[in-house]
Amino acid sequence: MQTSPAHAAHHDDREIETLEDFDATVSARGTLSGHRVQAVDLTDRTRELLTTDTSDAVFLGCPMRPDAEAKVRAEGALVFPPVPGLPFDPYRGHLYRAEELFAGLDQGYERTPDALAYAWFQTTKADGDIWASMLRAVHDDSISDALDELLRGARVVGVMGGHAMARGTAAYAGAARLGRELSRSGLTVATGGGPGAMEAANLGAYTAPYEDEVLEEACQLLGGAPSFTPSITEWARAAFEVRTRWPKGNHSIGIPTWFYGHEPPNPFASHIAKYFANATREDGLLARCNAGVVFLPGAAGTVQEIFDNATPNYYESRGEPTPMVLVDRAHWTERLPAWPLLQSLARERSMESRIALVDRIEEAPDALKRLGG
Rank of each mutant, 00 (worst) to 15 (best):
A269I: 11
P265C: 06
V303R: 14
R245Q: 08
A330F: 11
W235V: 03
V242K: 02
A299I: 13
V293I: 15
A279R: 14
A238S: 10
T229R: 03
T322P: 02
G254Y: 06
S270W: 13
V293M: 08
E234S: 13
G298I: 02
P297Y: 04
T302K: 12
P312T: 00
K248M: 13
E282N: 15
F307C: 11
G224Q: 12
A300C: 12
G298M: 09
T280E: 14
V293A: 05
F228S: 03
Y275A: 11
K248H: 12
G284L: 13
T302H: 15
P226F: 02
L222V: 00
G284N: 15
T280I: 15
D308G: 12
G249Y: 06
E234N: 08
V325S: 00
G284D: 15
A239M: 07
L286K: 12
K248T: 14
I253K: 03
V303I: 15
P264S: 02
C219M: 01
F240I: 00
Y315Q: 10
A291F: 09
E241I: 07
R288L: 08
V242R: 01
F228K: 04
A287L: 14
F295H: 07
A299D: 15
F240W: 06
K248Y: 11
A225G: 05
G301M: 12
T244N: 09
Y275G: 09
N309I: 07
M324W: 09
V325M: 00
R281I: 08
H271W: 04
R288S: 13
A273Y: 08
I253R: 06
P256T: 06
T229I: 05
A225I: 00
A277R: 12
N278D: 14
E241G: 06
E234A: 12
R281T: 10
A287W: 14
G249H: 06
Y260T: 05
H271Y: 12
P323W: 00
P256L: 11
T229D: 05
Y275L: 02
N309W: 09
N313P: 07
S231Y: 01
P247Y: 09
A299Q: 15
Q220T: 10
P267T: 01
G254A: 07
C219P: 00
A225S: 11
A279P: 11
G298T: 03
A330P: 00
T229A: 10
F259H: 12
R288P: 05
G284K: 15
C289T: 06
I232K: 14
E282P: 05
A225N: 04
L221M: 11
Q220R: 13
N309M: 15
L296W: 09
Y275C: 10
N250S: 14
G292Q: 01
A330G: 12
A330L: 13
W246L: 08
P265F: 07
P297R: 09
A310F: 00
E316H: 04
F307I: 05
P321Q: 09
P323L: 03
P264W: 03
L326S: 06
G298Q: 07
Y260R: 04
A273Q: 08
Y315G: 11
V294G: 05
S227A: 04
P230E: 08
T322G: 05
S231L: 04
